[in-house]
Design a protein around this nucleic acid. Sequence first.
RNA 1: GGUCCAGUAGCUCAGUUGGAUAGAGCAGCAGCCUUCUAAGCUGCGGGUCAUGGGUUCGAGCCCCGUCUGGAUCACCA
Length: 594
Amino acid sequence: MIEKILINKIVEAVSLIYGQTIDSKLVSVQKTRKEFTGDLTIVVFPFLKISKKSPEQTANDLGAFLTENLDEVTGFNVIKGFLNLEISLKYWLDFFNQSFSDTTFGLVSEKAGAPVVVEYSSPNTNKPLHLGHIRNNLLGFSVANLINAAGKNAIKVNLVNDRGIHICKSMLAWQKWGNLESPESSGLKGDHLVGKYYVMFDQHYKAEIAQLVLSGVEKERAEKEAPLIVEAQEMLRRWEAGDAGTRQLWEMMNGWVYAGFDETYRRMGVDFDKMYYESQTYLLGRQLVEEGLAGGVLFKKEDNSVWCDLTGDGLDEKLLLRADGTSVYMTQDLGTAQMRADEFHAGKLIYVVGNEQNYHFDVLKLILKKLGKPWADNILHLSYGMVELPQGRMKSREGTVVDADDLMEEMYNTAKTTTETLGKIDAFDDVEKHNLFTMISLGALKYYILKVDPKKTMLFNPEESIDFNGNTGPFIQYTHARIRSLFRKAAERGLAVSTDEIPQLILPKEKDLIKLLHDFPVVVHEAAENLSPAQVANYVYDLAKEFNQFYQEVPVLKEEDTAMIAFRLSLAGFVGSVIKTSMKLLGIEVPEKM
RNA sequence: GGUCCAGUAGCUCAGUUGGAUAGAGCAGCAGCCUUCUAAGCUGCGGGUCAUGGGUUCGAGCCCCGUCUGGAUCACCA
């Protein structure tokens, strides 16, 4: 890695020339900006106090030293305090030769260290997945890929919220008004069917409240006493008591939902190594609470409810067990965290959860610390921003929720129309066409969402998301297809990729590409470190754009010199391979032809 | 009200240990296909980096204040 070599040499140079040892962190190596000559630039301002010379003089001293003592540095120029270094062509070409045919370039294959548990998706079983879940799923899946790529073992887990009052609402509504409707009888996807009854419950419930308010009952009281909600609560009690009929209904309806979720996950291309169900974990955590109580970390109020006092940390008191002994969300999360720490001996526990739950995770970590869990610091909340629509937040009440299945279907149709209009794949059979439309539509959707920094609130503009030009997934897929096309043509003409004869001189565009490819391993590493697929997305876009410029102005197969053809072909192949790897990390497939 | 997060071109976004004249895409305008896939490429216009101070040789980035927007502060999850 040339950057490391330069940093070490600069430290050495400062020591030899100015007689002082400096921290290598003072040395910043960055890419030389396009308008100047050189490949890499070192900023010398930090050394001025030591050199006691002008920026220009200092830069000249160091530049001369590097040129003298490093084969990789063939020349330099100085502008103000910036030392622009020219790196030898040999260095770039050696790198190229070593890596161009390596299809795992940028990936760390040997696993090291403790595994990393990534929880994502975490749906409720009372309604279908929507746009917000899509961001969650894509982020979780891609982050797990990045962690694997960086040499750690990622374990993908999903904690399904399959119990609680909200589930009972759908169950009750189905019981009352469902007429035994099933996915089979209605043709509705299971999760959508159950979601329909959840909405239905809400409508009837609201009507009841309105009725009560009309008859003179206060609104607050009406909300608590409406027959439907009382009945739902009663159902939850029966569920917790293990009532056979209730459990049977619950299992049947959840089964419908799971079948629906499975289909959505499969279509989206995400998966899990392990599923957890809240119905099995909601009782966990009580033992931790007991221990905390015994250890004096938690306290009990007169009504027997158990709390954690966080006022010393600037937060409030947090309830952990209700007066009747039942547990809350936090109690369960304490338990599942312990379980995962034990089960996987995880080095990190990552939770992909929206930033609306920041407070929850602050509290979770704090309580675990108070309970004396040293691994509490391993908990990492990947707190991603909300997805908004042009008209603002999604609101189920106003029917502006974008359904995941509908969205993927619309994208598919758009991809189909656009592709057919362009008319490049008339020779494809139906299966090939279907695969391509799927690839393009998902590529567009996934890239659109993943290119934005996870932490930021993002805007989902339906019109923009189906645009396949510019900074989009299909643009990158297209670039890959172009490269593959070059290879097909080359094969037809009997041309081979070979680097037996590496040119002594390459074009600036070619060098730009090689330099960009050289960055890839660092990009993957940093993206994994920052849990940010967006960094890979932005990189691969730059790479595709750079390649298209090269493709436009430099002949590959039309070149006369056969050695040059071979070189350019292998360069294109390298780019294609890195595009494919990058996209794979994002969970996006790339086509051979489009 | 307390806490936290955000504010960069008309719109969507990059800009990650502070470095040179702040970059892309979309939208607009003007060009490039009998020649390797035009889902592409080239050019033009477009900025008080919300705002006022501060630290620094140097600030979109760090610190403080203000304004605007959002999230959260449940015996919901």
